[in-house]
Design a protein around this nucleic acid. Structure first.
Lengths: 117, 117
DNA sequence: CGATAATGATACGGACCCGTAACGATCGGG
DNA sequence: CCCGATCGTTACGGGTCCGTATCATTATCG
């Protein structure tokens, strides 16, 4: 049961959501930060720096820096893996879950407004 | 004829598209740059710095800087308005149109992959 | 003409991110 | 035990973006 969207509709949806994201005043997440955030909240744990770097096709410092920022925003946290103390496990937070939920609602809301265009 | 998307589907779509945008190696556009680009290509001209600033709810230097970057990437150009030489008209480019079209296709493609989730 | 308003661009100090390279901590095999 | 491999982080120089304030140019109106 695929989702039917035409390119013109997709673009209007993309624009409206980005307009909202810009206008809400909160700091914008970069594409990398967004990809990391959604991966952590949509895919099954555990999530590690290395695993995220592979999924995004970027280097590890990129993930570390993005986690610094996302952590500062309270959207997720890091914890040492006690089984293998080299690893760091990225964990979800209440604030992050709320932000992700809000994004999903935002997209859904704007989709409703998109007529057959 | 509204578009029916559930939040969980919207989030999966949002993630997949951002993963592609990150992985394709090209420089990521910020949320503001994306909003500007799509506004110029989806809304009727003319587009001015002041007009875009109002629509996005940001200050004019934000628009100027974003136009610098988008212009450097060849995604749009600026031209003096000869009727009122205080104004600058933002114009579309072939490369910009292709980039926007590609984004629309990207979203549409991933939408097809999103089953009933 | 001259004063005022409006437009877009620029200057500035500060913060963030980039890619590359190096680093300390930890694990695992010989 | 110890040496190499692996993990995540940090250092570095360079670039971009931020918000605020200011600027030059142009138009408008008395």
């Amino acid at each position: 049961m695929p989702l039917e969207i035409r390119p013109s509709q997709a673009l209007r949806l993309w624009r409206q959501v980005h307009l909202d994201l810009v206008r809400d005043g909160e700091p914008d997440l970069s594409a990398r930060q967004t990809a990391i955030l959604l991966t952590v909240y949509l895919e099954l744990p555990p999530h590690t720096v290395r695993g995220l770097a592979q999924q995004l096709g970027v280097t590890k410092p990129v993930i570390t820096r993005a986690l610094d920022t996302l952590g500062k925003l309270g959207l997720l946290t890091r914890k040492r893996d006690e089984a293998d103390r080299r690893n760091v496990v990225i964990q979800r937070t209440v604030a992050g879950a709320l932000a992700v939920e809000r994004l999903g609602d935002l997209v859904t809301e704007h989709a409703k407004e998109i007529g057959a265009g």
